[in-house]
Amino acid sequence: MLHARVVKRLPHFTLEAEIRCPAGAVTVLTGPSGSGKSTLLRLLAGLDDPDEGVIGLGDAVWRDTAAGVRLPARRRDIGLVFQDYSLFPHMTLARNVAYAAVDAGYADELLALFGIRHLAGAKPAAMSGGERQRGAICQALARRPRALLLDEPFSALDAATRLALRAQLLEVRDRFGIPIVHVTHDLAEAAQLGDVILSINGGRLDPDWFDRQLDVHLREQGALLARRGIDWAGGGPEPGGQDADGPTACRGRERPARRPSALPAGFAGAPKARASSPPEDHAV
């Protein structure tokens, strides 16, 4: 379980949040632009420092402002994927992944797993956006991280590639069983990926923001479909509906059951490392 209770004073507002991100689950941080979700991710990664608070993984404490504990980013054993700049442009894909890898064989294994082994000798500039982000995930996983952090990694991709990569990320979740924190402002992405969905608005957790936005989004989609004469049978969540259990312990929104995901070609033979049931520490 990756956990954080942080206060960070920013120029326009104060980020104040307490989150818990279970292992083997995707915790989505969503919210409007400039709400503090990427800052929170940077605090988890150790790239920014909180003014107050505690950040840790399991029993390990990465940052405790009161106790003066501060583990630098390079010792936190995490993988990080940015929207851009996730692969070093002067290295080939193989060297990018090997840069972080604990052993060369593992780097090769990851490339094969993500179906991009044939691009091993290519530089990022010669790869498509989707291939680059697959490579970036390989690089992030190459050091066998204890947590994976993703900052809007799919937002610059086309719809089809985004869908394929979302499916691969769910496979990563099931295969590696580590906490995954995924920042996105894309509601559909949040809904598809999030085992736990945490909304941040104006620097604070806003448990209802996601449902409110989803409500607006679904009404817009419904109106659009109606205008085109398409009958929307529904079947999904009722717009504006609340979880029966109400806000969870970390004031998030937890997906009740994991749904199957389409196996992309790169994962065709990949054994599943864990069952699809929620992890024990998923007590949020």
């Binding site: 790239l47 390079r74 990080l80 700049y85 996730s86 070093f88």
Partner: peptide, 16 residues
Amino acid sequence: GDLTRFVELSAVLGKS
């Protein structure tokens, strides 16, 4: 500019 992100990425990947 861009280099900041690459330096951060390298740090996160465990490099001194």
